[in-house]
Amino acid sequence: MNPKITKLPPIWNIVNMVVLGTLALVCAFPIMHIFALSLSSATAANSGLVTVFPIDFTLQSYQFVIENPAFVRAFGISLMRVLVGTPISMILTVLVAYPLSRNRGEFRARDFFVWFFLITVLFSGGMIPYYMVIRQTGLIDSFWALVIPGALPVFNVILLVNFFRNIPKELEEAAAMDGATHWDILFRVLLPLSLPILATLTLFVAVGHWNSWFDGLLLMNSPDKYPLQSYLQTVIINPDPRFLSERDLALLQIISNRTTRAAQIFIAMIPILVVYPFLQRYFITGLKMGSVKG
């Protein structure tokens, strides 16, 4: 907000706020509607009475979902991939960003490696050769296929390289005078100064892991190894009777399919909603910190 800018005439100010308010409502409404559906009774949901408030409030759908072992297992796999995959990605990001942030005098092969990693973003073998490689490496159907192949987020490396380069050189030079090695400079000088951007990148990697679904679908043969988003793909978006147990089918007769779908969608959103305040706070700072200056 720029305090110096002239204010709008009052009537336009109101029009402006009404339009923006409507936009915000359009964004919020679908999410509120799904939340309301998940807390409504099956009859209310099916008769189209529910808008943004639950009707015949009930937690039955949530109870059904939480008692479904397949859902709980998929939720656990997603949690695991976030907890295991995020640290691996962050360690790799830091270890790659440091050498690439050196100038050519200090690291003669720097430009070669910049291109080595950049090429992986610019060009890819495509879906089928990728699938074949994963199969060759024996990772198909293994949890590690969700964590290892995509462990280096090159875009995050770029942000961190730019951030490192904006830290005053004098700090490193002083440390180097005292005989600091590259490891010392990275871990004792640069990283302690980079905590905010590291927090930002960590959050983004974690959200990325939580939201990934295609790798699970492509690389896992059995649905009991699916992370939550892939599991939801097969039960909500693209329902396949093979994946529904008899218990599921029987219970679905009693509880509306629609309200349980809504409950599953909402539960999958909860982790994002929990970290959302942090995402919002760090995003702009992270973006600005990693941008190029000079």
Binding site: L92, L95, V96, Y98, P99, R102, F107, A109, F113, F116, F117, I119, T120, F123, S124, G125, G126, I128, P129, Y130, M132, V133, I134, Q136, T137, I148, P149, G150, A151, L152, T181, H182, W183, L186
Partner: peptide, 24 residues
């Protein structure tokens, strides 16, 4: 040490990014 830092990521990129390019 700089090469050492790059090593794990280089292996990863060779296998999972450059590997599929061979599959072309």
């Amino acid at each position: 040490p700089l090469y050492l830092m790059l090593l794990p990521a280089v292996i990863l990129a060779l296998v999972f990014s450059y590997g599929p390019m061979v599959g072309i």
